[in-house]
């Protein structure tokens, strides 16, 4: 029961990652792409934690933590570059 609900949750999260990827691919301006990239970073780090649960290895939670850090730094660097301050 719990496994079936969790598989449905992971499938919905993967679908939303794919839909945000459509915005990343076709967004008319660089700002739209960066917003989509920000949302995709959060979804991907949550999905890495879900993968840690499904595979049963705790090390992937640390991978998700580091990926969240690096994604945040990347989005802020891109935003500062687009603003013209970098």
């Amino acid at each position: 029961m719990a496994d079936a609900i969790f598989i449905a949750a992971v499938s919905l999260a993967a679908l939303s990652l794919l839909l945000a990827g459509i915005r990343l691919a076709k967004g008319p301006w660089a700002i739209d792409r960066t917003v989509a990239l920000d949302a995709m970073t959060i979804m991907a780090s949550s999905l890495i934690v879900a993968f840690a649960l499904l595979s049963g290895r705790r090390i992937y939670v640390d991978v998700a933590l580091v990926y969240g850090l690096v994604g945040f730094a990347g989005v802020v660097a891109l935003a500062r570059y687009l603003e013209g301050g970098l």
């Binding site: 029961m1 719990a2 496994d3 609900i5 969790f6 449905a8 949750a9 992971v10 919905l12 999260a13 679908l15 939303s16 990652l17 794919l18 839909l19 945000a20 459509i22 915005r23 301006w29 700002i31 739209d32 917003v35 989509a36 949302a39 979804m43 949550s46 879900a50």
Partner: peptide, 29 residues
């Protein structure tokens, strides 16, 4: 816990639909 995860992934889906359908960059943000 699985039900909470399902609710969270529904919010993910809402945000992805909002990213696709909102008219300009501020609304998408």
């Amino acid at each position: 816990g699985a039900s909470l995860s399902l609710v969270g992934s529904l919010f993910f889906l809402l945000s992805a639909i909002g990213l696709l359908r909102m008219p300009d960059a501020f609304n998408r943000m």
